[in-house]
Amino acid sequence: MTSVTELNPTSIGTVISPERTLRADARRNREAVIAAAKKLFADQGLDAQMPDVAKAAKVGVGTVYRHFPTKEELIAALANDRFERLAEKARESLETDDAWEGVADFIRFSAQIQADDRGLCEVMGSRPGVMGAAADAAGLPELCDRLVKRAQRSGQLRRDLTWEDIPMIACGLGRITQADVGPAAGRWPRLVEIILDGLRAPGSGKLPRPV
């Protein structure tokens, strides 16, 4: 009698991910939850609640909790999505002809994505563990390192900048974008350019060594 293994020799050791085993309707529900959560957390920040996500996604609260047992797990999933987008932008920036513009465009994009997403800005400012895990999963540290070294080799970026400075700059800019309200609203892009001007080589002074 022919065994299952003989019929499917390539199946030995194959691991099927939980995502692939979800029923089609379950996948649609998960996608609806993520889409609704993106908008709610972008508008309301981390104050957004799971019942509100369920209502916006047009699913039951139980469905939300089946996919994301805690609010923190949902926040982590949203952070992963946003950091994947940042990594995609970093890869695009590495393809620019001008190495300086690659760095500048990435920093501008980092500020803009936080201006558009209060939740992401709050995660970057208050949840370093979530931010670090999402950045590592997306490969962002290595991409930032390549951006920095490429611009330094071209002589356009100050030599004492390190890739670790980029996330700190991005976090600071995010806070600025969210505080940019009132009569002077809309000035944060100007501040981004002021910061970028300070990153150009040779730099007006030597940066203190990282602690």
Results as ranks from 00 to 15, higher is better:
L191G: 01
R28N: 12
R146G: 05
A201I: 07
R190S: 12
K206W: 09
A115H: 13
M1T: 15
V192R: 01
T177R: 04
A87L: 06
L161W: 12
A134I: 05
N80A: 15
T21Y: 05
A26F: 02
K206H: 12
G62S: 13
L86R: 14
G174L: 04
A37E: 01
A32Y: 02
M168H: 10
T10E: 14
L147I: 10
C171L: 13
V103W: 00
V103E: 02
T162L: 14
R150A: 06
L199K: 01
G102T: 09
A37T: 02
R118L: 13
T14D: 12
T5V: 13
V64P: 01
L161T: 09
A57S: 01
A99E: 07
G174F: 01
R158H: 12
R146V: 07
R108D: 10
A87G: 10
L143I: 11
V15M: 07
L191V: 14
R190C: 08
A135S: 14
I34F: 00
A24C: 09
A138E: 03
S11I: 06
A35D: 00
P202S: 04
G102M: 05
F83I: 00
L173W: 04
R91W: 09
I113L: 04
T96F: 06
I166G: 01
R118N: 03
Q112A: 15
A137M: 02
H67N: 14
Q178R: 15
R159V: 09
R209G: 13
E122M: 11
I195E: 13
T21R: 15
A179L: 14
P9E: 05
T21E: 06
S11T: 03
D81A: 02
R85F: 04
S11Y: 13
R30A: 04
R91K: 15
G102E: 04
N8V: 07
I34Q: 00
G172Y: 09
L207D: 08
D197I: 02
A201S: 12
K58H: 12
S3C: 10
S17Y: 05
G155F: 08
L147V: 09
L191I: 15
D97C: 04
L173M: 12
L147P: 01
P189K: 05
C121R: 14
G182D: 03
M168K: 10
L140G: 00
